[in-house]
Design a protein around this nucleic acid. Structure first.
Length: 232
DNA sequence: GACCAGGCACATC
DNA sequence: GATGTGCATGGT
């Protein structure tokens, strides 16, 4: 039989995923995600961090706060060009200015200045609404739901995919919803755990599980397979 | 100077 | 349905 074997649906149990968490937690400590202040700032950050380093996002958020427009009403009133200039350090600033305004318009239309009210709807309805907004895909929607709304949905990102793939817990062709379901079905329904689990995976991704690189010393070595063979 | 960073929409086949 | 491409700054 050619090619690596994947553990999905086979011998891997909830214990494996919980042990992985304990190993990451022991190495990195509780991550305290989401970094930032308040539901709106989390949602804004979720859009700005798309394919972008967080340090650049922080500069953009600081600019928005410095311009005193970190509110639904103020962002709604801001012009696209002004917004683009303020978020420039986050990259893709024209695209992201439009995406921010799409999101803000949806919130404003439904709940005015009240982001908490917008986020208070049942999780399925909220996710559907978020995904209908141009510029908000699955990861961005789930980040908003988990970290801004505080509702249980597992966030899958490129780090999650890469780490699970290298440890043979998923197959290369597995899509977002499959991976999300894998995590959710193997973990207790615990929002705080899901928040920190995703954050821990990002920490592993940043420090060890990098593209085109092996990862000696990674806390996830041997969970359940050493990522020491196969293609990179 | 190449590579990477907490994606997404859209065009094309 | 699968694959390719544009978007852009800033750190390593």
């Amino acid at each position: 039989m050619a090619g690596p074997q994947y553990s999905l649906g086979m011998s891997v149990t909830s214990k494996t995923f919980l042990d992985m968490y304990q190993a990451m937690l022991a190495r990195f400590g509780h991550q305290g995600w989401w970094p930032g202040d308040g539901a709106l700032e989390i949602c804004v950050g979720a859009i700005l961090t798309q394919n972008t380093n967080w340090t650049n996002v922080q500069r953009a958020i600081a600019n928005l706060k410095g311009a005193a427009i970190m509110s639904v009403n103020a962002l709604h009133a801001a012009g696209r060009e002004k917004l683009a200039e303020l978020i420039r350090p986050a990259g893709y600033y024209n695209v992201k200015a439009a995406r921010l305004l799409h999101f803000i318009a949806a919130v404003h239309e439904r709940n005015g200045d009240d982001i908490e009210a917008f986020l208070s709807r049942p999780i399925d309805a909220l996710r559907e609404e978020l995904l209908s907004i141009s510029g908000i895909g699955r990861e961005t929607a789930d980040s908003m739901i988990l970290y801004a709304a505080g509702k249980p949905t597992f966030v899958v990102d490129t780090y999650t995919y890469r780490i699970l793939l290298r440890h043979r817990l998923i197959a290369p062709e597995d899509d977002y919803e499959t991976i999300k379901e894998l995590m959710e079905s193997h973990l207790p329904l615990d929002v705080e755990l899901w928040k920190d689990y995703h954050a821990q995976l990002v920490a592993v991704g940043k420090h060890f599980c990098r593209p085109a690189a092996r990862c000696p010393g990674c806390p996830l070595e041997g969970f359940p397979h050493d990522p020491t063979s196969g293609d990179w």
